[in-house]
Design a protein around this nucleic acid. Structure first.
Lengths: 225, 225
DNA sequence: CCAGCGATTGAACAAGTGTTTAGTGTATGA
DNA sequence: TCATACACTAAACACTTGTTCAATCGCTGG
């Protein structure tokens, strides 16, 4: 649940407007004047409150990070996770700005993006380890690398939401978000792969193992210029 | 094989410098002056050759798209694909600029990025259909959606390369590229999931099917404000 | 030989950028 | 009540941006 009313302090209003514009246009192209205009204040006031455009960004980073961290902490619990997804499916617009901002943070090189990605990997690894203990998830050799792969796959929906929408024929009114019907359309194929696998047998896996073995042996020769 | 020598026309040199800077800094932040300086020419000449900064970008889009299209066309053939990957593993630097540029194109909303994503999905779908016919890939209900999911997962390595490197402890000298040793480290877990699945049984898949069924029934009520 | 043409440059321009500054209210606390 | 502090604005500043323009340089065709 979020507060949507406009009983925010001016500083918070500016920050939220900045999150929206930074997420939509990127940190570079979004201007202080545009942020000020969106917040209904003068450009000077933005600087007065945040010192500089970089300071404004830092405040946005911290806020979005804190917001998502407080939601993500309980995500290991399946029931809470389900409720969170349900909440998003019912009110996707309330999360749109933050999601767009995170997408930009992951794309730019920013400390906030780094922290967010690391948090997702950490939680994924927790979930995997709990799942292995409970017998619901297969036991892997390298849990860490597996967690990175799974986290990366999950975040690809966030990074490529716009293209997923296009490819599956949804209306692209929302520039980048991923709507409820789209999420529904992708859930089954994704879970199907995660449950029954993608390849029919271990041919490719064995071939890759062989190739990597061979590549490691030949590494000194092949990598020489 | 690419030509690395400097026997390029000035126009091509400017274009290549622009691809490098657009990929590294983004289309907005990268300036005409920086491109001109990187190419060793005056800013006016950039405009003289391409009309405007937007024209320069269009030329970069077309060039990168043509470059990747010519390589991707034969990717359905497994042998060629393997050779392409080998080539990349041995000379990753030669592809770095184009990869960074594609990453930015996929993140911005650009026609080139759209075309690239669609091409990847199309080829993925071709590979899946050929694999199903050959018996190497499982037969899915919805090939199209599956192709979108697989393509999205594959491209996540491109979009999040920087974070994958960080998470797996590689040196982050290259800002976003994904190095050979990193690719080696991720191949086995990814193929393991694609071969043996991620979940131990179909519990999650069944639960999702039930949830979506129920959500569809309740959709009218739950989505109301 | 030379007229012409494209490549190329340096300087300038107008617009937009982040930021500063001086000034105006408007509270709050002594 | 008055002075201090703070939120806030309008205007200006210095700088960067994309783009234009006049003027060269170097070649090539007649």
């Amino acid at each position: 649940m979020r507060l949507t009313a406009e009983d925010l302090t001016t500083r918070a209003r500016i920050r939220d407007a900045a999150i929206g514009l930074f997420g939509r246009d990127g940190f570079g192209p979004a201007t202080v004047r545009a942020v000020a205009s969106a917040a209904g204040v003068s450009p000077g006031l933005v600087i007065h409150h945040f010192g500089s455009k970089a300071g404004l960004r830092e405040a946005c980073d911290q806020h979005v990070l804190a917001q998502t961290a407080s939601q993500g902490r309980e995500k290991t619990d399946p029931a809470t996770a389900r409720q969170l997804i349900q909440d998003y499916l019912n009110h996707p617009d309330q999360y749109a700005d933050e999601i767009a901002y995170i997408r930009r943070s992951l794309g730019d090189e920013s400390e906030a993006g780094d922290a967010f990605f690391d948090a997702v990997v950490r939680q994924t690894q927790d979930i995997i380890e709990a799942g292995i203990a409970a017998g619901t998830i297969r036991d892997f050799g390298d849990v860490r690398s597996t967690a990175v792969v799974v986290a990366s796959n999950s975040l690809s929906m966030l990074m490529l939401g716009r293209h997923l929408s296009r490819a599956l024929g949804a209306d692209v009114t929302e520039p980048h978000g991923i709507g409820p019907e789209l999420l529904r359309q992708l859930t089954i194929p994704a879970l199907d792969i995660y449950t029954n696998g993608f390849y029919a047998d271990s041919r490719f896996l064995d071939a890759a193992r062989d190739a990597l073995q061979q590549d490691t042996i030949n590494q000194g020769r092949e990598h020489a210029p």
